[in-house]
Computed example of a mutant assay.
Amino acid sequence: MRLNFRGWSVAVLALVSCASPGAMAQVLTPFRSESQAQRHCPGETIVWLDFGRGRYYSKGQRRYASGTTGSFVCRHEARDSGYRRSRLGLR
């Protein structure tokens, strides 16, 4: 079976329109400083995202703002991107 251009474009459009909003990639905006992240999302909790471990740490946790493979991000962006909070390291 051979599809012409119009048939092919209709098939692609149907697939794209069926995609759920939850399946879309979430934008994650990393920052070097906590204040930059706070300006990006005022009123939101800022967390330290460790890319190597796939976890984020809240202020007051031992690994917050430590390591070379992390950045400050908004907590909702970290959660929506699939990162999990660390339950370890509470002070």
Rank of each mutant, 00 (worst) to 15 (best):
T29L: 07
R75D: 07
S9A: 08
L90A: 13
L90Y: 13
F5Q: 10
G54P: 13
C41F: 00
H76F: 13
S20C: 12
M24K: 11
G89A: 11
R84S: 14
S66I: 08
R32K: 14
V10A: 14
D80C: 00
R85E: 15
G89S: 07
P21I: 06
R87L: 14
E34M: 05
S71W: 06
R55A: 09
F31R: 03
N4A: 04
A78C: 14
S9D: 06
G43R: 05
G70S: 09
S71P: 00
N4Q: 06
T45M: 00
A11S: 13
G54M: 10
R79M: 10
L3M: 08
V47Q: 00
D50C: 08
L49Y: 03
L49Q: 06
E77S: 10
Y57A: 02
Y56C: 03
A23Y: 06
V27P: 02
V27L: 12
C74G: 07
R63E: 15
M1Y: 07
L15V: 09
L49H: 02
G60A: 08
S81A: 15
A25T: 09
A23R: 06
G22K: 10
H76M: 12
G67L: 02
R79Y: 03
C41E: 06
R53N: 10
R84Q: 14
S35P: 00
R87Y: 15
S66Q: 14
G54A: 13
Q61G: 06
L13F: 03
L90K: 14
A37D: 01
R63K: 13
L15Y: 01
F72Q: 00
P42V: 07
T69A: 12
S20M: 09
G22I: 07
S58T: 11
T45I: 03
G7Y: 01
S86N: 14
G7D: 03
H40M: 02
A14H: 02
T45H: 01
L28I: 15
R39T: 10
Q61I: 05
D80R: 13
G60F: 03
V10F: 09
V27E: 11
L88V: 13
E77I: 06
S9N: 11
G82K: 05
L28K: 02
R79E: 15
Y83D: 01
F31H: 12
S81P: 02
S35A: 15
T45S: 04
S20W: 04
R55E: 12
Y83M: 04
Y83F: 15
T68Y: 06
Q26P: 00
Q26A: 15
G67S: 08
